[in-house]
């Protein structure tokens, strides 16, 4: 059961990584990247590393998304 959940999380991670690279709308890409970081934090917790999980949830899903949003608000939204 637990292994099935882990495999599901890993598949979701790979799908998120591919979709982030292929999305043309940068705001959508930032939001998908936040979901990627959240799933990555759960995977760190499953790998018995709660320290990195806390840091990933705070930095990856919180601060990095806001920094990307600030960068988008200073530049263009759509990729050419």
């Amino acid at each position: 059961m637990l292994q099935a959940i882990n495999i599901l999380l890993l598949v979701f991670l790979v799908v998120c990584a591919v979709v982030v690279a292929r999305t043309k709308d940068l705001l959508s890409a930032v939001i998908i990247f936040g979901a990627y970081s959240m799933v990555m934090s759960i995977i760190w917790q499953q790998l018995h590393s709660p320290d990195i999980a806390i840091t990933e949830a705070a930095i990856g899903a919180g601060a990095t998304s806001l920094l990307f949003l600030a960068a988008i608000s200073r530049t263009r939204r759509h990729e050419e």
């Binding site: 806390i54 919180g62 601060a63 806001l66």
Partner: peptide
């Protein structure tokens, strides 16, 4: 909590500082 229990439980200076920094970003936003 993460900061003050850095030597007892998972977490520490970087994790607690990141959480507080994210909250300060939310506040200043």
């Amino acid at each position: 909590y993460i900061l003050f229990h850095g030597h007892l439980s998972p977490g520490g200076g970087f994790s607690g500082g990141a959480v507080i920094g994210a909250s300060l970003i939310l506040y200043s936003l």
